[in-house]
Nucleic acid binder design. Structure first.
Length: 509
RNA sequence: GGUCGGUUCGUCUAGUCCGGUCAGGACGCCAGGUUUUCAUCCUGGUAACACGGGUUCAAAUCCCGUACCGACUACCA
């Protein structure tokens, strides 16, 4: 193995949509690779044929594309270590399993799943736990107990078998985790995990070790749920006589309330996405929300995710992907699980929304307008966006903040009428209409100056008049600066709305 | 049950390795200010070292124990 080359991989199983915890794991791998000038690889771990879900692999690839996370090698782009899909590498694992048998590190076992299940039940009844370990393997149906001739005969007769790892009986394993430091385990407590299944496929444990070695992976950065199997993996590298990669086990993403790791259910329950993209389950037809479809910007999403378990050590919070790559180090990844906070996710999106160009946001807004049956030119929409973007977390919220730029109010908010349409209002607004109709330069600044002067001369209350004015133009007590609004919709439209408003609201007695 | 991991404001976290500033920032929340409304924005406030021992002049920081939480414990990954 070339020791100087940093190579990391993300190795999902195509069993469904990618959970944001998985996205974060991939992100940290990506950032680590970019930070160190290394390579980032996408490998598909589809050794469980029974759990294959159509479309999952495509979903995973599309998710990263959306996030802006790019791979250097992988199932979708190829590379020097092809193939990158384990089902297509099927043939290579058997030989490695047999190599382990030859070296005395593994053995054939013929126990059927039913037999083992029965054993587990039996143990449970006695309040014990059945473990296929160095004790149990001495009295079960395997090559350690059977003679070589019997074993050979069984295999030749076509009996189903698995290959299990033969754990050392009593050995202290000291392991180094980049995030957690030293982890020590006695092999006594380990069980003889299956490496090779009776269906001819390797298990994760064998396949990931073989592939990581063959693909010259230098660092294995994965979720904390893999920490308990790190000893097995270390032992496997040792048994093969290979140098093990460095390991880093990332803390879990926890649910926003209560206990435990974040799950799909939490998203449904609390109304926030758990997946990067929308996903429709091919079997149940059930649809799950995605960040993309819910209006999040990919850069905001990635930024938010990166800060969940990692921090730069200073007080910066807004990072582009490039900035993240520059700042990221594995040392600054925390040890403890992070509770996901949907509120902060929204805040991040707002930050990115405000930072974006008005024209860019207008482009994104136009489809929403079209859906409302409104056609407006980009220039006008850009002006509108400029006025309302600070008030929104998402582009889809623009409509509720700016509908009145595109159409006259159809109804007047009842509460607002009650509060702001007083006895004097009709006459004052009628006067205001007169005033506005005479203005030649209808710019925001100019109308504001003229109206304020008029208010002062007349001794009218600014709040009273302008709120009544707003009520008529907007339909409610909301929206940006009044003079910005009328300047944008124009003099003609302003006067038209005043006419309608006066007629609708009438004179209050 | 067993093994491993974790524990600083409600949440994300800095500080812990190399003991010593009112334990800092952000989100949220609350209050005030700005404003013609709402939002933004500005200012301020709220609020934490899981617990118990020990070592020390001094512990969030080092040691031990306890509690709690989590992950894992499949011919799944």
């Amino acid at each position: 193995m070339n020791q100087n080359k940093i190579r990391v991989r993300f190795a999902p199983s195509p069993t469904g949509p990618l959970h944001i915890g998985g996205v974060r794991t991939a992100l940290y791998n990506y950032l680590f690779a970019r930070n160190s000038g290394g390579k980032f690889i996408l490998r598909i771990e589809d050794t469980d044929q029974t759990r294959f879900v159509p479309g999952a692999e495509e979903y995973i690839i599309e998710s990263f594309k959306w996030c802006g996370i790019e791979f250097d090698e992988g199932v979708h782009i190829g590379g020097p270590f092809e193939p990158y899909r384990q089902s297509e590498r099927k043939d290579i694992y058997k030989a490695y399993a047999e190599q382990l048998i030859a070296s005395g590190n593994a053995y054939y076992a013929f126990d059927t799943p039913e037999e083992l299940d029965a054993l587990r039940l039996q143990y449970e009844a006695e309040k014990k736990t059945f473990v296929y370990n160095h004790e149990a393997r001495k009295f079960l149906k395997n090559a350690l107990v059977l003679s070589d001739a019997e074993t050979k005969k069984l295999i030749e007769s076509g009996a189903a078998y698995v290959i299990r790892f033969k754990n050392p009986e009593d050995e202290i394993i000291r392991m180094e985790d980049l995030i957690r430091g030293e982890v020590v385990v006695n092999t006594q407590v380990l069980d003889d995990k299956i490496l090779f299944k009776s269906d001819g496929m390797p298990t994760y444990h064998l396949a990931n070790v073989v592939d990581d070695h063959l693909m010259e992976i230098s660092h294995v950065i994965r979720g904390e749920e893999w920490l308990p199997s790190m000893p097995l993996h270390i032992l496997l590298y040792k048994a093969f006589g290979w140098e093990a990669p460095k390991f880093a086990h990332l803390p879990l993403l926890l649910k926003p309330d209560g206990k435990g790791k974040l799950s799909k259910r939490d998203g449904d329950r609390m109304g926030f996405p758990v997946f990067p993209l929308q996903w429709q389950d091919p079997k149940s037809g059930e649809t799950s929300h995605g960040y993309r479809e819910d209006g999040y910007f990919p850069d905001a999403f990635v930024n938010m995710l990166a800060l969940l378990g990692w921090n730069p050590g200073d007080e910066r919070e807004i990072f582009s992907l490039e900035e993240l790559a520059k700042a990221f180090t594995i040392e600054r990844v925390g040890k403890s699980g992070s509770r996901f906070d949907p509120e902060k996710a929204k805040w991040f999106n707002h930050q990115y929304l405000v930072k974006k160009e008005d024209a860019e946001l207008a482009q994104l807004y136009i489809p929403f307008l079209i859906e409302k049956g409104i056609s407006a030119d980009l220039d006008y929409v850009t002006q509108v966006v400029k006025l309302v973007k600070e008030r929104a977390h998402f582009v889809y919220e623009f409509w509720e903040q700016s509908d009145f730029f595109f159409r006259a109010p159809e109804v007047f908010d009842e509460q607002a009428v009650k509060k702001r349409w007083k006895q004097d209002s009709y006459d004052q607004i009628a006067e205001l209409k007169e005033l506005l109709s005479g203005i030649e330069n209808f710019s925001s600044e100019n109308t504001e100056e003229i109206v304020k002067k008029w208010l002062e001369e007349k001794g009218y209350g600014m709040g009273a008049v302008l709120n009544a004015f707003r009520l008529i133009i907007v339909g409610g007590l909301r929206g940006p600066h009044m003079f910005d609004i009328i300047s944008l919709i124009g003099q003609e439209e302003t006067l038209r709305r005043l006419e309608i408003g006066l007629h609708e609201l009438g004179k209050k007695e």
